[in-house]
Design a protein around this nucleic acid. Structure first.
Lengths: 244, 244
DNA sequence: ATGAATTGTAGCAGATTGTCACCGCTACGA
DNA sequence: TCGTAGCGGTGACAATCTGCTACAATTCAT
């Protein structure tokens, strides 16, 4: 990347955990965003006074009497800057209230950086056109096929009997991309672009390996794949039948 | 190129950047396509009303409240004209959503004109059976004939007794193309176009081989084919009776 | 920082497909 | 009816491509 790409957007991060702040800062800066991070409500207020941001990532669980929801409400009172909340995994109430308060999306901790990036991009894009009615359609829908359940939000796959299948990030991403469009044949190049950040190099069998690993975990008989089939000379297709 | 060759296809380009529009226009016109280019969503709508096109090249990043994805969705709602999206280099979310919305392919900016031409040709050439680019859900119907069941979605063929027949990618594609139009005679050239990506070369018995292999797997008596018959001097026909 | 987990590479084995060569059959005219 | 030019059927083999195991390089989590 020879590009300067320094202004994808200005992000303000509020989290009491310094490691999380640093993690987000580094990642987003690498991605070409300008990041300011603060550890408490006052820092947030000061920063918002001092500069303008395109989006705020707001941790809802703050120590010491601080309350993320109040802060969100406070921000909303004076501006309509997009807010993405970082919530505890199962904090359903917070999520709901958060969206009511005017947050644009929420991400459950622990989260994957790639996921956060995706959400940020989505929100920023959605914002560009005037989007006066904040409550956006919540996050993505769950995909069901042949008894399996793929939950993009929680990033987990469960079998017919309810058992959770342990997929790695990469495996999950791969499955998600494929399963979203059953019957569509994806080339390796497309899969590479859609699941990795990296660049594609000519003779690369990475995708094949990943597919093999994924099959091992989800295909009853890896010799005769029923969910993910290969299309010689082209790539792979998801052949599971979507159910409602 | 002495020929007038003005009808390779009619392309509609939407991009807010006039330079890009011009670049694409000139290039594709040189290549014998008829190009109409517009700079915003309204232009797109008007053009689609006014004339018919073979393909749409759609920039996803539009200024001023316009949203390429919405436009793509809008187009899909009323027609199944092929769409190729022009996306930002790393915009994975856009790519995924774009494909979900029903785009046929995407090209990351900045792109090479050659590349665009290649993709356009590919998309136009084959509305391939195996590459169901039609609207997302449009899972195809299952074909039944003489007890056999051919399921394009799952890419599998089952016999009367429910046993799955193990067909290779090429065999499956071949059968699918033939079985979709029982009684229609396909020349070898058509079959080559419809089942392979490669180019056709004069003396090629590839199709014959593939047919032979396929027959071996599905014909009760390969000597006297009952499902796929040869038409001397022309090609092959599928003669199985479709049943519902 | 360090060990564990995940992902990227290599390379061999097995599949699948592209070509060739050879043969039998069909169409057609002498 | 016989002979001949072509065409289609096949088996054999080479060229490609995919599956998989093993191991190295990275990334992640503590």
């Amino acid at each position: 990347m020879a590009e300067p790409q320094s202004e994808n957007g200005r992000i303000l991060v509020l989290d009491d955990d310094a490691r999380i702040r640093q993690m987000l800062s580094r990642y987003f800066e690498d991605e070409g965003y300008h990041v300011t991070s603060v550890g408490d409500g006052n820092g947030l207020r000061v920063s918002l006074q001092a500069a303008t941001f395109d989006i705020v990532l707001l941790d809802l669980m703050l120590p010491g009497g601080e309350d993320g929801l109040s802060l969100a409400r406070e921000i909303r009172a004076s501006s309509d800057i997009p807010i993405i909340m970082l919530t505890g995994r199962d904090d359903v109430v917070d999520k709901i209230v958060g969206l009511e308060v005017g947050a644009d999306d929420y991400i459950a901790k622990p989260f994957h950086l790639r996921e956060v990036l995706a959400r940020v991009k989505t929100v920023l894009r959605r914002r560009r056109p005037q989007n006066p009615s904040p409550p956006p359609a919540a996050s993505e829908e769950v995909l069901r096929f042949e008894g399996w359940t793929l939950d993009p939000g929680r990033r987990q796959l469960t079998m017919a009997d309810g058992t959770a299948v342990d997929l790695t990030t990469g495996e999950f991403d791969m499955l998600l991309v494929l399963a979203r469009q059953p019957g569509r044949v994806f080339t390796r190049e497309m899969l590479m672009e859609l699941t990795r950040a990296r660049n594609w190099e000519a003779f690369d069998r990475t995708i094949d390996s990943q597919i093999a690993r994924l099959r091992r975990k989800i295909e009853p008989d890896a010799r005769r794949p029923s969910l993910i089939k290969s299309v010689r000379g082209v790539g792979y297709v998801f052949t599971g039948k979507r159910s409602e």
